[in-house]
Design a protein around this nucleic acid. Structure first.
Length: 169
DNA sequence: TAGGCCATCTGGTCCT
DNA sequence: AGGACCAGATGGCCTA
């Protein structure tokens, strides 16, 4: 039987209306509805009202805050899903979706690994250059390959300038 | 059944 | 004042 956390088709249809906690994907928690609308998940403290008007107004405010928080968490989860989609691991229906913490850890390791590979490549290029004239394939930006950070910096700078309305001095 | 993971609620804090 | 962010609490679902 397929377990719940399989790869979501493409995650949530977020940003529903306020105060209607949508049940995301097909996943788990089919009955969060009961929870969400009024103080289910959390502390039961919501309604020990002193004045009625205050509790009504306060309840509305609370509901809005809850909805916002829910939306925020959904956005966070969407970002996590995007992260999962770009880090290499067994994306398969038979494999359970990476947990949040596992996603972050794996992403960190992946970045480290890429950095190492880049460093290695840089050393190799330097070495080959020292050996004598190298035939650079057409279209290959050697400088960008060696200093990708710099290249990105320059690219974003150029973009900023073009957005600011032409070349600044 | 215990443990892991998750969604949600909630109150606090900080920032604009 | 209102929004964003955060951490703690709670309860549900799933797997071993």
């Amino acid at each position: 039987m397929s377990s719940p956390y399989y790869f979501p088709p493409s995650s949530s249809g977020h940003h529903s209306d306020e105060n209607t906690p949508e049940v995301h994907t097909s996943q788990q928690h089919a009955n969060r509805l009961g929870n969400a609308v009024s103080g289910g998940g959390g502390h039961a403290s919501a309604g020990s009202g002193s004045s009625k008007s205050k509790s009504r107004q306060g309840k509305l405010v609370r509901l809005n805050i809850n909805a916002r928080e829910r939306r925020r968490m959904h956005d966070l989860n969407d970002a996590l899903d995007e992260l999962r989609s770009v880090i290499p691991y067994a994306h398969s229906p038979s494999v359970r979706k990476l947990s949040k913490i596992a996603t972050l850890l794996l992403a960190k390791n992946y970045i480290l690994m890429q950095a190492n590979a880049l460093e290695e490549l840089r050393r190799l290029i330097t070495y080959l250059q020292a050996q004598g004239p190298m035939a650079i394939p057409p279209g290959f930006d050697l400088h960008a390959a060696m200093f990708p950070g710099k290249a990105l910096e320059l690219a974003t700078l150029a973009q900023d300038q073009s957005q600011d309305g032409g070349p600044l001095s």
